[in-house]
Simulated scan of single mutants.
Amino acid sequence: MSDWMNWLVGAGILVIAELFTGTFYLLMIAIGLAFGGIAALLGVSGPIQTLTAAAVGLGATAILHRSRFGRPAKTNPTRDQNVNLDIGARVAVPSWHEGRARVMYRGALWDVELGPGALPEAGDYRIVEVQGSRLIVANA
């Protein structure tokens, strides 16, 4: 097998490994290996191919690390619908007492508090946050 084929087979293996891990970092290294294969196709020497692959892989990894895809989003888990499926659900509040209420939700009594900007009126509310056994709600 020629050099350029070896580089592209290595890149293909890393792309497949990236599909199993779900990170983009292996994909960036695979791009570097692909550039090493392009350098081999152009007929440059082995050390220059390796330096090309390393430089492109490191550069792509650095760019990814600085992008929004390189860092997980910092979200508050008490407000994240992917963490708590109750976020966004509706709850009926019959009455309020000093900004608090007790409601039956999913077969249990829950303490309910008004979120910022919510008005204390009887009716349906949307859950915006769950703090322990308290539901923080906003007007629906």
Rank of each mutant, 00 (worst) to 15 (best):
Q49E: 12
T50Q: 14
T50E: 10
L51Q: 08
L51F: 14
L51P: 06
T52A: 13
A53L: 08
A54N: 02
V56Q: 04
G57T: 14
T61K: 00
A62Q: 00
H65Y: 07
R66P: 02
P72F: 02
A73C: 04
A73P: 00
N76K: 09
R79S: 12
R79L: 15
D80V: 13
Q81N: 13
V83A: 13
V83C: 06
V83K: 02
N84L: 08
L85P: 00
D86Y: 06
A89G: 00
A89N: 02
R90S: 04
V91P: 00
H97M: 14
H97V: 15
R100T: 11
R102P: 07
V103T: 10
R106L: 13
G107F: 07
L109W: 07
D111V: 15
D111P: 05
E113W: 11
G115F: 13
P116F: 15
A118C: 02
E121Q: 05
E121T: 01
A122W: 05
G123W: 05
G123Y: 00
I127T: 00
V128L: 13
V130M: 06
V130L: 03
Q131K: 03
G132L: 07
G132C: 08
S133E: 11
S133A: 13
S133G: 11
L135M: 08
L135V: 11
I136N: 06
V137T: 03
A138M: 14
N139S: 09
